[in-house]
Amino acid sequence: MSFDFPAPLSTLPPGGVGRVVAIHGGRGPSLRLRRLGVRPGALVRVATVGRWGGPVLVEVDGCQVALGRGLAQHILVEPCGPSPGNGH
């Protein structure tokens, strides 16, 4: 059992799982994120990370959402370690 400090979602490696702690940035994006299930308390899993500073593909609520890298830097998560399955 490890305890980690909150870190930006963009720092999670592919396969990493985190619990959303806070979403910084404008109200518009944070409302839209909320509707897609990315809200404080939600469990997100990084499926893959795009090249050339590309987006982070996360799995949340059983579906996949691509989040721009800049946006992912504003989402703070508490890392929960890598997930055992492939998330499907």
């Binding site: 994006p29 579906c63 996949q64 959402v65 989040l67 721009g68 800049g70 946006l71």
Partner: peptide, 9 residues
Amino acid sequence: AGLILEIPP
């Protein structure tokens, strides 16, 4: 604000 794009199955 940045990409927010659902990737459907």
